[in-house]
């Protein structure tokens, strides 16, 4: 079992100034599975997600204690380069954020940064990534069009394509479908199912239906603590904690 663990958080604490945003989080995330983080807003699930690729480093007042291991390496270790870490751990944001450049340039941005200069290699990466994000058939004829000209759902898939273009191992998704209509959401969810063959996916969602549809494992966060984790099926049918049950059944949050 342990060789299947991709990410392991141990006694992870995070404080913003006086605010204790995460308390003693212990969580194992399995390889090539979809793990959903659920909980009421402000419970720390997004904050936890951002700890996994050290995006919280950008906030001056954030202080982090504890360990996060990816493939057995503590990513908060002294000799870890957060820039290289983020290449390995990609992220998709709540609000789709394509660069104000062409579709092609959006995808090529990451590979270029990492030193790919050859035009044909770039072309291949762009096609592969767009196919991977199930967007190729829709945009293959106008790759020069601005990424901002796409619809909301397409923009989000463009961001996914952009993330997988740098060949990461983990994809972090922060409520990727919260701003989309049901049809676009369904497409994204379908895509997530396909992506888990190649990537380990951690998704934050406030929709319990979404969590039950896409995830293998679910972790419930409440007030900065990780209350319960287990197979999605079990969490949604027979949670062991009272708080989880209250949340699942819609008594709060």
């Amino acid at each position: 079992m342990t060789e299947n663990i991709k990410i392991r958080a141990g006694k992870l604490n995070l404080q913003y100034g006086q605010k204790h945003a995460l308390r003693d989080i212990d969580l194992d995330i399995e390889k090539n599975r979809v793990t959903a983080l659920i909980g009421p807003s402000g419970c720390g699930k997004s904050t936890f997600l951002r700890c996994l690729n050290r995006m919280n480093d950008l906030i001056d007042s954030a202080r982090i204690q504890g360990r996060v291991e990816i493939d057995g390496t503590d990513i908060y270790g002294k000799d870890v380069d957060p820039v290289l870490l983020r290449r390995k751990v990609g992220m998709i944001f709540q609000k789709s954020n394509p660069f104000p450049k062409s579709i092609y340039e959006n995808i090529a941005y990451g590979p270029r940064i990492h030193g790919v200069k050859d035009k044909r290699t770039l072309d291949q990466i762009v096609e592969k990534s767009l196919r991977g994000a199930a967007l190729w058939d829709e945009v293959k004829d106008d790759l020069a069009k601005s990424g901002l000209a796409l619809s909301g759902g397409q923009q989000q898939r463009l961001c996914i394509a952009r993330a997988i273009a740098v060949d990461p191992e983990v994809l972090l998704m922060d409520e990727p479908a919260s701003a989309l209509d049901p049809i676009a959401t369904a497409k994204i969810e379908e895509l997530i199912w396909q992506l888990k063959e190649n990537y380990t996916i951690v998704i934050v969602t406030h929709s319990m239906h979404q969590a039950s549809r896409v995830s293998d494992t679910t972790a419930f966060f409440y007030m900065g603590e990780m209350v319960e984790t287990g197979p999605t099926q079990k969490i949604f049918t027979s949670p062991s904690q009272k708080r989880t049950e209250d949340y699942i059944t819609g008594r709060f949050g």
Binding site: T73, I75, D79, V80, D81, V83, L84, L85, K88
Partner: peptide, 8 residues
């Protein structure tokens, strides 16, 4: 993920 030195 070893730290890379970017002198430039």
């Amino acid at each position: 993920m070893k730290k890379r030195i970017r002198l430039g």
